[in-house]
Design a protein around this nucleic acid. Structure first.
Length: 747
DNA sequence: GTAGGGTTAG
């Protein structure tokens, strides 16, 4: 290494910031040792350079060589620990420094406060705050900012009772002192000049009225919180101070206040920067206010922030939460580079908007881009497997999750519970659920809904009760789950009990889904008129989706007159309802009123409506095979047909009698049997039987309800082939085993 | 000394 001339060394010593690389620092270290020896001063000097470069190893080596480190050395090592995320070490050094009788100053407090914040050590944080005040450092800008940040973090986790009490004390004392010194800043100066902000004023002029007026009024009644008190006491504030207090407001849901502060910030002649924008964007995402979000986007573009990674993922997320995925795509593709968070954001954007295939595509692209998926990536992509019922993919991801030890993450575990339940593996879902250390409302809801879909109504109900015994309050969604459970098992009284407790005890306004569950339940139970009246009792206009299950119930219970009334209701709100036409023609066919059935069919044709064909899917060796009713196109069709013939023969010996009343065509009896024999689920099941080893369970997904004859037939088949056959139709799972179905023939 | 992404919905 070339020797540094002593002139240069002198220049460097006067201006250490010219050392910007590790080799240069090491070179300087050698030179200093050579020329100046191992004095405490020279070692502290080189230590501060290492600390500035964030070189922990080197800093520690130098620090440990100091028998009694001077104050500057302590400062360097504390700063270095904090910026390496070694917060406990940072605080330990702080205590040791104090034990050596060294007094901290404004350079060291920000690091110490940050460490307290990360470790959520409120007691120490309070003590440090006291120390700050006693040493008179409380008017330092950086220290004030760090204090606010710390209090905001404490508040966001677990309230602020004790902290507020302490901060109040300290701050009141400060306030008196400031008052005496006659340099009091007006507590509310930011409010008196709210109306004159530059660009951001327009941006938010109406936002406060719509979003925040209530919160502002409520907040005005409360005492100022610790963050705000520190802010109000600060003699000098910069953009970081404003951003910190704004972020604190957003974290505690005080959106109105946050937006008002953005305006006030403009008044203090400070321009909102990228931090400000990424603080306020989630407000518009949560309030689904794409107009305000777009204005922020405009501001970001005008100020060149739109290519900032943080702003990019916030914008992308805001558009996704406002159901504008196309705009999310645009933002994503505009980003000059992407990190794990931008990838996670685009994956979540797709997943949250029902675009599961696209979500998977982005997930794969992310892997291709060498970005390692983290816990959040998995909690965003697992729901795609649930919705696509891709057990194969879900299992692969679960394997990765276990290897990466992400399985104790509550978001991931909940999504896995849901995935296994939706893919037909309810026992696996239950197993993951019971292995979870902590259950939140989402994981409880996922397992209750899983049990509901598999017809395990009593399990669903007892889990729902257990949840409440463990102090978890049911929510809107969890009531949907428990009502669904009741509905699938015909538990009318229990359903009413939950519906009433939801509205009366928990003050939750029933939504469409709750009405749908009750109406469906009454319909399935054959209480058709009651269901009709219940739907009519709904305060707002009833959408056709509420009536459709009742229509099905009318068909099952053969009530043509009510069906006519229901059809009229449906067509009133949705004249294009193909379902109503199909159902009416089916209902008349079932009643052998062929003429009327034909009338509905004809008018359907005239309107150009096409019936959704019945379809069943089965996954065999990682490939999905789809079958339509009467489908002969599968390459193994003749073998499938052969298998069905053999099965039919055995089934008839065992006592199976085809129920041709389900065939809604005006054809001969023998032809009806043939039609039943080739329903899509039977083709799929026969294919599953001939293409998998004996004993393998068979999982089928179907887009419409299983007909009663197929339901009966599959029971026989399960016994003959000695296999479990799991069929998911459009509303639930049926597990066929040993000639019985888990639904107990109620579905 | 400040910032972005996640799970449940017949």
């Amino acid at each position: 290494m070339a020797s540094l001339p002593s002139m240069v060394l002198k220049a460097v010593l006067n201006n250490p910031h010219t050392i910007t690389t590790k080799p240069r620092a090491k070179q300087l270290h050698a030179q200093i040792v050579k020329h100046k020896g191992l004095s405490s001063t020279s070692l502290s000097f080189i230590l501060s350079i290492y600390a500035d470069l964030n070189l922990l190893r080197e800093s520690l080596l130098v620090f440990n060589a100091l028998p009694s480190p001077p104050f500057v050395a302590w400062k360097s090592i504390i700063r270095c620990y904090t910026s390496h995320g070694l917060f406990a070490e940072s605080l330990a050094s702080f205590s040791r420094m104090r034990a050596f009788g060294k007094y901290p100053d404004h350079n060291v407090f920000p690091s110490v406060l940050k460490s307290c914040a990360f470790l959520m050590d409120s007691r120490l944080g309070e003590a440090v705050h006291g120390c700050v005040v006693r040493l008179g450092v409380d008017c330092d800008l950086y220290t004030g900012n760090a204090l606010m940040n710390m209090y905001a973090k404490f508040r966001s986790l677990g309230g602020n009772g004790g902290i507020r009490g302490f901060a109040d004390e300290v701050l009141d004392e400060m306030s008196q002192r400031v008052n005496r010194g006659n340099v009091m800043r007006q507590m509310d100066d930011h409010e008196s000049c709210l109306d004159s902000g530059p660009e951001m004023y327009q941006l938010n002029s109406s936002g406060q009225n719509e979003i925040g007026s209530l919160e502002i009024r409520r907040e005005a009644c409360c005492q100022r919180d610790s963050v705000r008190k520190v802010f109000d006491m600060m003699p000098k504030r910069d953009v970081v101070s404003w951003n910190t207090v704004i972020a604190g407001n957003v974290q505690s849901g005080m959106y109105g206040e946050a937006l008002a502060m953005v305006r006030a910030m403009g008044n203090a002649n400070l321009r909102p920067d990228s931090f400000t924008l990424s603080n306020v964007l989630p407000i518009f995402a949560e309030h689904v206010d794409v107009h305000k979000g777009k204005e922020i986007h405009g501001y970001a573009v005008r100020h060149g922030f739109d290519t900032n990674l943080f702003i990019g993922s916030s914008l992308l997320d805001m558009y996704a939460k406002c159901a504008r995925v196309a705009d999310s795509y645009r933002v994503f593709h505009m980003l000059p580079q992407r990190d794990g968070i931008s990838w996670n954001s685009i994956v979540a954007a797709c997943s949250q908007n029902g675009m599961f295939d696209e979500g998977l595509k982005f997930f794969r692209l992310m892997l291709k881009d060498d970005v390692k998926p983290g816990p959040i990536s998995f909690s965003s992509i697992i729901p795609a497997c649930s919705h696509l019922t891709s057990l194969h993919l879900g299992k692969q991801l679960h394997g990765y999750i276990m290897r990466a030890r992400f399985d104790d993450n509550v978001y991931i575990a909940s999504s896995l519970v849901d995935m296994y339940a939706k893919c037909g593996k309810i026992e696996k879902a239950k197993c993951i659920f019971s292995n979870m250390e902590l259950h939140d409302i989402v994981s409880w809801t996922a397992i209750v809904m899983g049990c509901a879909l598999h017809g395990h109504a009593l399990d669903a109900i007892s889990l729902f009760e257990k949840m409440q015994m463990e102090g978890v309050k049911p929510t809107y969604v969890s009531f949907i789950a428990v009502l669904t459970a009741c509905s699938h098992a015909g538990l009318v009284d229990e359903a009413w009990k939950y519906f009433n407790s939801m509205t009366q005890e928990f003050k939750i306004n029933p939504g469409l889904e709750h009405y749908a569950a009750i109406a469906d339940l009454l319909g399935r139970a054959g209480r058709l008129e009651e269901a009709y009246d219940f739907i009519c009792s709904m305060p707002s206009e009833q959408p056709s989706s509420l009536w459709s299950p009742l229509m099905t119930a009318c068909r099952v219970h053969k009530n043509v007159e009510l069906a006519e009334k229901v059809a009229e209701r449906i067509l009133r709100v949705d004249p294009e309802s193909i379902g109503a036409y199909v159902q009416m023609s089916n209902i008349y066919s079932a009643a052998q009123r062929w003429k009327e059935a034909a009338k509905w069919k004809v008018s359907m044709k005239q309107r150009g409506f096409k019936k959704k064909p019945a379809c069943s899917w089965i996954e065999v060796r990682n490939r999905v095979h789809a079958f339509l009713s009467g489908d002969t196109s599968h390459p193994y069709y003749s073998k499938i047909n052969e298998a069905l013939e053999v099965l039919l023969e055995q089934m008839e010996k065992d006592g199976y009698k085809p129920n041709t009343s389900e065939v809604l065509h005006d054809v001969e009896e023998e032809q009806k049997k043939q039609l039943l024999q080739h329903h899509s689920e039977r083709l799929a099941i026969a294919f599953g039987i001939i293409s998998t080893p004996p004993g393998t369970e068979i999982r089928i997904i179907k887009n419409i309800r299983v007909c009663t004859d197929c339901h009966e037939a599959i029971k026989f088949i399960s016994k003959i082939v000695g296999r479990e056959i799991i069929v998911r139709d459009n509303s639930r799972f049926h597990h066929f085993k040993d000639g019985k179905c888990s639904c107990g023939d109620y579905w």
